[in-house]
Design a protein around this nucleic acid. Structure first.
Length: 830
RNA sequence: GGGCACGUGGCGGAAUCGGCAGACGCGCUGGAUUUAGGUUCCAGUGGGGCGACCCAUCCGAGUUCGACUCUCGGCGUGCCCACCA
């Protein structure tokens, strides 16, 4: 073996060895009774899709660095991991390849456990959970029944989103641009009886309390606000001429009421049938129109079709002007939003304008610009607030004032009221699929809807189910569906549906706190002590799904007394940027994945981790390159070559005080260490987590160390020994294996990950000389070396000795001096 | 169409408070070591000029002694929402 080979860091053997030892000794296990301040550090739990790629590694590496540095900063850190194990891909594998979904899932979990361990992440594996375990999903069923008892779970027939490919209904949150979020199929509308969670009961709190989530990205809060979609307006009714009916409309622009020239209703609106009873002549054309819409998917109806409609022949009476306007059935008014009917104001609404132009309906301007300069004919709708015209007694009012006045008038007439409307709908949780939590409900001919009693939970998923891809697997399984009523003992049928997997992730973070409890989902006191999650890390794709559901669920949990304290579950949220390969998001479906196993085998875990942290700030998208990681391989080897030969003697210089400093180079070396320590501390304390900067400071430190080691007798220099001694500590959160290997070679028995971070020392950070920038008229002309704290006059005197400065001032008057202590002197001359 | 981000060398990025633009890394160039390749080490690396200096953070204005940073306008990129009444 040659000399160079001997000094090469054998990362393959060393990294594996440390992972086994950490696990054997359980050094990352969190204890409930630890007296130190708690820190709950959580990454969104992964779906066990098969293989991890370096995109996953990016997410977990950041979370692990944060957990590790908090542990070293004196916190009792809880850092758990688990599996979001229910879901469609497992069932699709069953249909396509005849593998049992459970087998498929368990195999994937096993493989991903191995890969996550390969990354050297500091999880407390004793708390691991998988949502497909009956010990976990039992509590989904338990919570379902608690929600049912509170009236927050209910079954209702409603128009719902149906995915024809995945053969199940979807929540509104799972429909993106009219398409299924999983498979991309155009979603259809179906009227089905389904279970909902009443998230709308919590909508005001979910909206208002976003304001106090200071640790959340503004972007995510905005997305939640938009999704909730609160709008304030007026709901009021129109009489229908010659028909015993009223039509309620909701509008945010009641100031435009005098400009309504038609009334638009959704085809599904009940008033359509009432009108047809009186005026059967219109039936054929309305039926034809409605039928033409029926064939269209929701996507086509909302996005691709032009606005169209047919008149009903009936007229509505404007409650204020008494004007009669025609009632039209249209395709652009949605039955599910507001009241399903809208006053058509072409002059001041873009959709109504387009519709009126097409069908030759009048355009009546009732708002003009504040200066009154806008007059008919309008070539485009004027949708801003302005001043009312042609609006009876309200003419001349500003929009905002008119809105209040007209609302008050409608209220006084007993026709209307100020209302608030929300875009968000109740959360549809039924799924017509097998691989999920069975809904714990039994239908009895005598007793109706009967919840399964707590002591009969869990309702287990049956094994050996047939997967044909046709219809719901559980519904086709008589041994599961046929049961007896828990109340009367008579024949009954089980609900054949399973729950949306987002139910699992709405409270899983509480199960980590008490994972083996078989009497309750979690203990009240244990949960209250650990909650809320201090730092939550994950991608932004869950902004209106998981993150909204979990907030709802935790509010319910605190309201019900299952836990106490702040009812917001996640104090701080950090959105990781995605990992790109060749400019595209790395994903299995795109086929551009770089695997964990290959990367670790080739470059080592620490090099991979360092690259993922170093290449970009964690919130930014990061392009994976094989060239970039070799720089980190070099770094790991450079550290090893510098520090390992001194490992046996480094401990002779203690870390609890600064070492003897023999010269300027030694000062700079020790300073570089403390700069790195401070960077790690600050990036953590400010929650920026820009460890790309901290790792750059580590590079500078190692550059200084390498230079110092070229001096004769460097091994005997106390500053060199001190820095080598401290190196494992400052490396530990980022390159945990390398750090522990060096630490143990110094003779320590205990892992470096149980050591304290060294507090950056102001004396080490202080500089003996500062560089004062001298500007003339804002342009840098000289840099002068001076002692820190130099006064303005002394600085000026020094500056005037610099030829580059005097040359610029020559022949001019000095008007002003700006002096920033220890930084800059700007001489203004003209 | 609306909202929110962002725009700095060949590339990823740094500059935390309005005060040295380009830290650190990749790549590249030259040198040393090496039979050679690789590794390692050293030096250099925004553009222009022989030079004192000049130009440069998407473009254009503005505020300021001083702007990558603040304001206004434009262009570009990304993400989210979108017949929501």
């Amino acid at each position: 073996m040659s000399v160079t080979e001997e000094r090469t860091y054998d990362f393959r053997a060393i990294e594996r060895g440390w992972q086994e030892r950490w696990e054997r000794e359980g050094i990352y296990a969190a204890r409930d009774d630890d007296p130190r301040p708690k820190y709950y550090s959580l990454e969104m739990l992964p779906y066990p899709s098969g293989d991890l790629h370096v995109g996953h590694a990016k997410n977990y590496t950041l979370g692990d660095a944060i957990a590790r540095i908090h542990r070293m900063r004196g916190f009792n850190v809880l850092h758990p991991m688990g599996w979001d194990a229910f879901g469609l891909p497992a069932e699709n594998a069953a249909i396509q390849r005849e593998i049992d979904p459970e087998t498929w899932t368990r195999e994937n979990i096993r493989n991903m456990q191995r890969q996550i361990r390969l990354m050297g992440t500091s999880y407390d594996w004793s708390r691991e959970i998988a949502s497909c375990d009956p010990e976990f999903y039992r509590w989904n069923q338990w919570f379902f029944i608690r929600l049912l008892e509170k009236g927050l779970a209910y079954k209702r027939e409603a128009p719902v989103n149906w995915c024809p490919i995945d053969q199940t209904v979807l929540a509104n949150e799972q429909v993106e641009n009219g398409r299924c979020w999983r498979c991309g199929a155009a979603v259809e509308r179906r009227n089905l009886a389904q279970w909902f969670f009443k998230i709308t009961d919590y909508v005001e709190r979910l909206l208002r309390e976003l304001d106090r989530l200071d640790g959340w990205p503004e972007r995510i809060k905005t997305m939640q606000r938009n999704w909730i979609g609160k709008s304030e307006g007026v709901t009021f009714s129109w009489d229908v001429e010659n028909v015993e009916a009223q039509i309620e409309v909701f509008t945010t622009r009641v100031d435009t009421l005098f400009g309504a020239t038609f009334l638009a209703v959704a085809p599904e609106h009940p008033v359509v049938e009432q009108i047809l009873q009186k005026m059967p002549k219109a039936r054929r054309r309305i039926d034809e129109f409605t039928a033409s819409l029926k064939n269209k998917s929701e996507l086509e109806r909302t996005q691709l079709m032009e606005k169209t409609g047919v008149p009903t022949g009936a007229y509505a009476v404007n409650p204020l002007s008494r004007e009669k306007i025609p009632i039209w059935v249209t395709n652009y008014v949605l039955a599910e939003y507001g009241t399903g009917a809208v006053g058509g104001v072409p002059a001041h609404d873009e959709r109504d304008f387009v519709f009126a132009k097409k069908h030759g309906l009048p355009i009546a301007q009732v708002i003009t610009t504040p200066d009154g300069s806008l007059h008919a004919p309008l070539h485009e709708p004027y949708v801003e607030d302005g001043k009312l015209i042609a609006s009876g007694e309200y003419t001349g009012m500003k929009s905002a004032i008119a809105r209040r006045a007209i609302a008050a008038r409608l209220e006084a007439m007993g026709r209307g009221r100020v209302t608030v409307n929300y875009r968000i709908r109740d959360w549809l949780i039924s799924r017509q699929r097998y691989w999920g939590t069975p809904i714990p409900i039994v239908y009895c001919e005598k007793d109706g809807i009967v919840p399964v009693p707590d002591d009969q939970l869990p309702v287990l998923l049956p094994k050996n189910v047939k997967f044909t891809g046709q219809g719901s697997p559980l519904a086709n399984e008589p041994s599961f569906v046929d049961t007896t009523c828990p109340r009367c003992g008579g024949p009954a049928r089980r609900d054949p549906d399973t729950m949306d997997t987002f139910v699992d992730s709405s409270w899983y973070f509480l199960r980590y706190l008490d994972p083996r409890n078989d009497e309750k989902p979690f203990d009240h006191d244990v949960a209250s002590n650990w909650m809320p999650v201090d730092q939550y890390i994950g991608g932004a794709e869950h902004a209106v799904l998981h993150l909204l559901y979990a907030r709802f669920f935790y509010k319910f949990i605190v309201d019900s007394g299952y836990a106490s304290g702040d009812d917001e579950p996640f104090t701080r949220l950090f959105n990781q940027g995605t990992l790109l390969k060749d400019g595209e998001k790395m994903s299995k479906s795109r086929g551009n994945v770089v695997g964990i196993d290959d990367t670790v085998e080739r470059y080592g875990v620490d090099a991979m981790r360092l690259f993922l942290l170093k290449a970009a700030p964690p919130e930014d998208a990061l392009e994976w390159t094989d060239e970039g990681i070799v720089g980190r391989v070099r770094f790991v080897q450079r550290v090893w070559r510098a520090a390992e030969p001194l490992a046996s003697i480094a401990r002779t210089v203690p870390l609890d005080r600064l070492p003897e400093i023999r010269g300027e180079a030694q000062r700079e070396l020790v300073r570089a260490l403390h700069v790195a320590l401070e960077s790690g501390k600050n990036e953590t304390a400010t929650h920026r987590f820009h460890y790309n900067v901290t790792t750059a400071k580590l590079d500078e430190l190692v550059n200084h160390l390498t230079a110092a080691l070229r001096e004769p007798d460097a091994q005997d220099d106390p500053a060199v020994r001190y820095v080598v001694h401290a190196l494992p500590i400052v490396l530990a959160p980022f390159a945990p294996h390398l750090a522990d290997e060096l630490w143990s070679r110094m003779g320590y028995e205990r892992s470096v990950h149980l050591e304290r971070w060294i507090e950056p020392d102001p004396a080490a950070l202080a500089v003996e000389e500062i560089t004062l920038v001298v500007q003339v008229n804002g342009k840098v002309r000289a840099r002068i070396q001076a002692a820190p704290g130099i006064g303005e006059d002394d600085a000026f005197a020094l500056a005037m000795r610099a030829p580059a400065v005097t040359a610029q001032i020559d022949g001019k008057q000095i008007r002003k001096r700006i002096f920033v202590a220890d930084k800059l002197l700007n001489i203004v001359a003209a």
